[in-house]
């Protein structure tokens, strides 16, 4: 278990991470979100022991980086980490680099080849195994970074923007990979792509200005959108729509004149699609189409982080 208690990190008197606390248990796949400069990478650097905390404590499986060097090494042994930008030694070939990682991680000599073979299959690196890393494309470099994080089958995975620079097919593949790996591991993934969170994670932590402002499931995050369960209809021509507001469970309605699109918002936790369609049928309203709104996590994200910014300014 990862237990983070009230950690802060100060750079030049600027609090990059401010009193952050959370716990992560096996099976958790945490999407770590936040605007640029919110403190995501800094938090990940502290979780991996690269940076010391300015205050607070991090405990990983009951061990802490501040204790003896031996314990710090023990923690690091259990972590697979993909740093921001997926750095690697570019003068080495992919094989040399991965072999080097197995050596530093003190994997038994007999299992090294097998581990390299397995991880290269997982992240599809076989075709570039003997190429120098500096000659690889951005997508391959990212996958080399993923491979070195996965090679020792760690029970904690910390990935800083793992799909950055990958094409849509590769993104899909990496997401599936993380999902499959996640069963009994603790995974923390930072990303800018909110769809990724919905696709991969079972928990979302949003931080802004170094503070936590959301920690729950992606479904709960979606529910925070005004568009959650909302219904949009397109009118063939202007007609009386005031009756829609009186439907049980409807909170509000917007009408964009000129386009004849009407969006009906639901009260929290209510489903209104059925009532809205029967209302349309009953009143024989001139409607071309009706569809339930897709929640855009981007909007919710904006709302949450902007609110946090405003609070900060107050």
């Amino acid at each position: 278990m990862i237990s983070v208690k009230n950690i802060s990190r100060v750079f030049n008197q600027h609090r990059v991470v401010d009193d952050l606390s959370f716990e992560i248990r096996p099976g958790d796949v945490v999407g770590f979100l936040g605007p640029n400069g919110a403190g995501k990478s800094t938090t990940m650097k502290m979780l991996t022991g690269f940076l010391p905390v300015s205050s607070g404590s991090i405990e990983i499986n009951g061990l802490s980086f501040t204790q003896s060097g031996r314990e710090a090494l023990k923690i690091k042994q259990n972590i697979g980490y993909l740093p921001e930008g997926a750095p690697a030694y570019s003068d080495m070939t992919v094989y040399q680099f991965l072999y080097f990682i197995t050596q530093v991680r003190r994997m038994p000599r007999t299992t090294r080849q097998q581990a390299i073979g397995k991880v290269c299959e997982q992240v599809q690196l076989e075709q570039v195994l003997n190429k120098k890393i500096e000659h690889l494309s951005k997508g391959f470099k990212r996958r080399v970074g993923l491979a070195q994080a996965l090679i020792h089958d760690p029970n904690i995975l910390i990935l800083d923007e793992p799909t950055d620079g990958l094409d849509p097919n590769q993104k899909y593949h990496v997401r599936q990979l993380i999902k499959n790996l996640a069963k009994d591991k603790m995974v923390i993934v930072s990303t800018h792509i909110l769809d990724e969170v919905a696709a991969v994670c079972n928990r979302v932590i949003i931080i802004a200005n170094g503070k936590k402002c959301f920690d729950d499931t992606p479904e709960t995050l979606k529910k925070m959108s005004p568009l959650h369960n909302a219904v949009t209809l397109k009118l063939s021509y202007a007609s009386d729509i005031s009756g829609l507001l009186e439907i049980d469970g409807v909170l509000d309605m917007t009408h964009t004149p000129g386009t004849n699109y009407v969006t009906v918002f639901a009260q929290p936790g209510r489903y209104i699609l059925g009532q809205v369609t029967s209302h349309i049928q009953y009143h024989q309203m001139p409607v071309d189409m009706v569809y339930p709104e897709e929640v855009r996590l981007d909007d919710v994200f904006r709302k949450i982080t902007l609110e946090s910014n405003q609070q900060e300014q107050v």
Partner: peptide, 14 residues
């Protein structure tokens, strides 16, 4: 410069 310092220092090595 390359950021590999972050990689090497998060490996189990002092």
């Amino acid at each position: 410069k390359s950021g590999s310092i972050e990689l090497i220092m998060t490996l189990p090595i002092t």
